[in-house]
Design a protein around this nucleic acid. Sequence first.
DNA 1: CTGAAAGCGCTTACAG
DNA 2: CTGAAAGCGCTTACAG
Lengths: 348, 348
Amino acid sequence: MKGKATSFDIAYRAGVSQSTVSRALRGSPLVSLDTRKKIQAIAKELNYKVDKNASNLRRQHSVTLALLLFEDPSPDDSLINPFFLSMLGSLTRACARQGYDLLVSFQQLSEDWHAEYQDSHKADGLILLGYGDYVEAREKLQHLVEQGTHFVRWGAVVDGQPDISIGCDNIQGGRDMTRHLLGLGRRRIAFVGDISEHCPEFRDRYLGHSEALAEAGLGVDPALQSDAVESTEQAGELAVDALIQRGVPFDAVFAATDLMALGAMRALARHGIAVPAQVSVAGFDDIPIARFGTPPLTTVQQDTRRAGEELVDCVIRQIRGEPATSHMLPSRVIVRGSCGAPSGRDGG
Amino acid sequence: MKGKATSFDIAYRAGVSQSTVSRALRGSPLVSLDTRKKIQAIAKELNYKVDKNASNLRRQHSVTLALLLFEDPSPDDSLINPFFLSMLGSLTRACARQGYDLLVSFQQLSEDWHAEYQDSHKADGLILLGYGDYVEAREKLQHLVEQGTHFVRWGAVVDGQPDISIGCDNIQGGRDMTRHLLGLGRRRIAFVGDISEHCPEFRDRYLGHSEALAEAGLGVDPALQSDAVESTEQAGELAVDALIQRGVPFDAVFAATDLMALGAMRALARHGIAVPAQVSVAGFDDIPIARFGTPPLTTVQQDTRRAGEELVDCVIRQIRGEPATSHMLPSRVIVRGSCGAPSGRDGG
DNA sequence: CTGAAAGCGCTTACAG
DNA sequence: CTGAAAGCGCTTACAG
């Protein structure tokens, strides 16, 4: 065989027209069973695969989705946010289940990522993960919407947002965790993370946290909140340093992110503060290393598997012209050793 | 604007032929600077992107690579080997640098993965990660080669292999680690992992281990080697249990994988054996959680960043008809707390 | 330097 | 149920 077989090759061998071959292989009901069988047999024999480029061109779609991963530029570029990575797994599988391919692309936060994929027909829809600063991203999102791009963003559902997003219920997650801490007798709970409009997810977690405090008849002390410049271990460490510097007493640290919580533990250890004996530490995400913390980290688990499925489903619905809406997924508290509670069976 | 702009739209506005538009946008030297500028301006204005399907069809390639990730089926399918995941990051970036897109696909180990991607023109080349059992994979690899598929496998370089592979120098890595252990005064070093021809990478690590023993004038005691059914934490735990059951004394465990090493530590803890005081534990891979072990795990680090680059480079060379050969990448021992050595500055 | 034209390999109305 | 034909949007010899 020279070169790849085409539908004409198999038509010739089967003694039918090329149209019939195409129909048979696409499962059209218009072709007789005998013909179909014969064609399929020859196709297999010749190791024939329909040319996706030709097929896609003709049908005007690509049956692939593009995953745009946005990352803060970091010197060591093999280090990826573990949460995104776990999302990637479920996204890939969800796509496969729906018959879509997944194109993965890391975007520099600075880049112009408008519709590159969809317009070039590389992908029929986009999934955005880790869009960075929401305020900055917003106009780009707006632009994408105006262009009619099919896409969904993983993240907070924000009032009046231009796009469709799916995220975990951050308010609920924050509320549940603070309730847990309160139930353990903690009263002065520090919150680590940027709660401005730039980080709506963290803001929601803080909101839930505040709600739980209110439920318990406690007020929110602004001195107990400490910004972190990014969502890294180091930033979490620095934030707790700042907190200690500030001189406000606290008996728990609730970090908006596991990575920051791990950093918080490090700062605490450095200051000779025992976890959880003196201070409880809680995180958010349940990334794989959370359970390897010293002590293992109590955190809020997001259901990445379900998230991946819903994200894919949401884009495909848009592609098909079906209704799709923003919504939130439930989360759950995973109790491990870092808060002082008896470890649950979930703590694995 | 109804629908996407085509090269005809921009030709019309620019007052030139569609051929000229195509040339200008592809950077052909045949077009005058003025014409090119004008065309580029209009293209930007109309938000024009060349249709990849049409372009690819015409040029008979796709400028995309497919990453085939093979995984042992696991009940929790969001759990992916962290080593592969870190590879994925560098692969994506390496592709981007070369102007290629990356299609990600999880293959069930059982599936028939022959040339699906290349024949359908979805991808110009394949990168295989985690091919499973080498003996089983071998005939498929052979088949791929016969079909002229452009691909590279991440893994051991095996004598007489049909395909091209790039992997870390497992023999060197194994040798270096065992030398390290020997330098720490350990004499009875257990090795955890399947060293049969089914797992050539582990076999090579064991080979290096044996070489280091020989250098030190020590013999290889087969009783100190313990198979693990898979490369998971649990399998590592079981393997160490078996070792203890066996009653052979040992003062170190060198696991063929970090995940297994972590499991080994768990088994040791369960038996009340102190690490590293009584027994040193070493791993291989340097996955992100390695440094979070209790104590932090001493391990052999593979340079995933460089690996990603070389893998991509290797496939692209094949696509271009340039020579490409199997080769190995150096690895390095990362000293942390699990073996009893004073922790190096590399220990992160 | 530019244009007219063929052709990449399919899918799908249209006609039978 | 089947075939002949148009067309998806490009790229690139070929001719000027």
